[in-house]
Simulated assay, not measured.
Amino acid sequence: MEVFRASAFTADRPWGALDIANMGGVTVRLHWTDQPYKWHVNDGEEVFAVLDGRVEMRYRDSGVEHRTVLGTGDVFYAAIGTEHVAHPIGEARILVVEREGSI
């Protein structure tokens, strides 16, 4: 048993992560960031839950870019092939569940 205090977690670089679990090839990681990530497509599904802060999630559907702001408690699901990028608004802490080795 282990308790993780997400609100107290910081990293030494944007998108630094604390590995919480690997469940048969599916990872659960806590990220801290104050900088955007990069446009990418995961090789599997991804669940992205904002635990603290706000994040503007940008994603492309049929070549059209969409944007939505996620607040604390909001969850974004990226299906296989969803091109997306996260832009934090200030500092944010995010729980990411995805296939091991995804970018």
Rank of each mutant, 00 (worst) to 15 (best):
M1S: 10
M1H: 10
M1W: 10
V3F: 14
F4W: 11
F4H: 09
R5N: 15
A6C: 02
S7Q: 14
A8K: 07
T10E: 14
T10Y: 07
T10A: 09
A11L: 11
R13S: 10
W15C: 02
L18K: 14
D19V: 08
D19Y: 06
N22P: 00
M23E: 11
G24A: 06
G25A: 07
V26S: 14
V26C: 15
R29Q: 13
R29S: 13
L30T: 11
W32G: 07
T33V: 03
T33W: 00
T33E: 01
Q35Y: 02
Q35V: 09
Y37G: 14
Y37E: 12
Y37L: 11
K38A: 15
K38G: 06
K38I: 01
W39N: 00
V41S: 00
G44F: 08
E46V: 02
V47R: 14
F48C: 01
A49P: 02
A49T: 14
A49H: 15
V50F: 13
L51E: 05
L51Q: 10
G53C: 01
R54Y: 15
R54S: 15
M57T: 12
R58L: 14
R60M: 13
D61L: 13
G63Q: 06
G63P: 11
G63L: 09
V64F: 14
V64W: 07
E65H: 08
E65R: 13
E65W: 11
H66R: 15
R67K: 15
L70R: 05
G71K: 04
D74Y: 06
F76D: 06
F76N: 11
F76E: 03
Y77C: 01
A79S: 13
A79K: 15
I80Y: 05
I80C: 00
I80A: 03
G81N: 02
G81I: 02
G81H: 00
T82G: 10
E83P: 09
H84K: 09
H84G: 00
V85M: 12
V85C: 05
A86N: 08
H87L: 12
H87C: 10
P88H: 10
P88A: 02
G90C: 02
E91I: 05
A92C: 10
I94Q: 03
I94G: 06
V96I: 13
V96P: 00
E98V: 03
E98M: 08
E98W: 06
E98I: 01
E100V: 09
E100C: 08
I103T: 09
I103R: 12
